[in-house]
């Protein structure tokens, strides 16, 4: 029983962090109809941002997150201008491989600039745990989780309470109708993409004290994020949150039960199965998989 609680607690914490990444990816798909293969690279950049600000200036990641996130937002604006916007409405090969190219580019730019060395950030919270009802929780993970919740909440308020957010939702519902209603669709694309990758960057900063930092760290995570957003239904924000928590728990449970490798396999098999049997995801609306609806 204690063990089950432990697995669930760990799973929820890690799942909550994944949610910040997954929500952005699913939002980009819902609004732009683009699968952002470079998404986890922005997380990687966030991690390096946290690392360098900590290593050079001793800045704590829980503070530097407020510096790094806006920078990644601006990077998102540039990437939207230069790459993403130009791929919208083009053939599948352009839509898919433009961001895949970006991912290869960013990963290896990081590798060239900062080498393959494995780095880590330590904060006041590193290594310490606290115990609630017999469940041991990492302080770093819990603090990161709490800050991630804060960001998720801000994102939620932005999407549902502000003009920009409502415009973005309208575009996600129906591009043409939104354009007719006078919504600046291109600006909605730009804001969506930039906000989403900024969230990924923020997540990167927050996990810097927990995960090890290396140039290919994004690649180790991106497929997990795909699993999450597909399970949740590509384009569905609540679906992504629920699926992220679920995947977090499944991962911490499966890793414990079968060992990591075979647990991985089981979960990709499930992913493949969902894509084939229920491509709209567990919570997505039907028709999204035919790509256009």
């Amino acid at each position: 029983m204690q063990l089950v609680l432990q697995i669930i607690a760990n799973g929820l914490l890690i799942g909550g962090l994944y949610a910040l990444l997954a929500v952005g990816l699913t939002l980009i798909f819902g609004v732009l109809r683009v699968v952002n293969f470079a998404h986890a690279e922005f997380m990687m950049l966030g991690m390096y941002g946290a690392y360098w600000l900590w290593a050079l200036y001793g800045l704590d990641p829980y503070l530097s997150v407020f510096l790094v996130t806006p920078v990644i937002f601006l990077l998102g604006v540039a990437v939207d201008r230069l790459i993403v916007r130009r791929s919208i409405g083009k053939p599948d090969v352009t839509v898919v491989f433009a961001t895949l190219g970006l991912s290869i580019f960013l990963q290896n730019a990081a590798l060239t600039l900062w080498r393959a060395d494995i780095r880590s950030v330590s904060t006041f919270a590193t290594g310490s745990v606290f115990v609630v009802g017999g469940v041991r929780l990492s302080v770093a993970m819990t603090v990161s989780f709490a800050v991630a919740l804060l960001f998720a909440l801000a994102l939620w308020i932005f999407l549902t309470r502000t003009m920009y957010g409502k415009g973005i939702q309208a575009v996600a519902q129906n591009r043409r109708a939104a354009a007719l209603m006078g919504i600046d669709v291109k600006r909605a694309y730009m804001i969506t993409y930039s906000v989403a990758v900024a969230a990924a960057g923020a997540m990167g900063v927050l996990v810097a004290p927990i995960f090890t930092i290396f140039p290919r760290v994004g690649q180790t995570q991106i497929v997990t994020i795909f699993v999450i957003v597909v399970l949740g239904g590509l384009g569905s924000v609540p679906g992504a949150v629920i699926a992220a928590l679920l995947v977090g728990i499944i991962r911490s449970g499966a890793g414990f039960l079968f060992g990591t490798a075979w647990g991985e396999l089981a979960y990709f098999a499930v992913f493949l199965l969902v894509l084939i049997v229920r491509p709209q995801g567990l919570f997505g609306r039907r028709g999204a998989e035919v790509y256009g609806g």
Binding site: I83, R86, S87, K90, P91, V93, T94, F97, A98, L100, G101, L102, S103, I104, F105, L106, Q107, N108, A109, L111, T112, P215
Partner: peptide, 22 residues
């Protein structure tokens, strides 16, 4: 110039080709 730089060029090449000359 090393493996990383080679892949940087691959990434750029891929982006340029699919965007400008699909």
């Amino acid at each position: 110039v090393g493996g990383g730089a080679a892949l940087v060029v691959y990434g750029l090449l891929l982006m340029v080709i699919v965007l400008a000359a699909p």
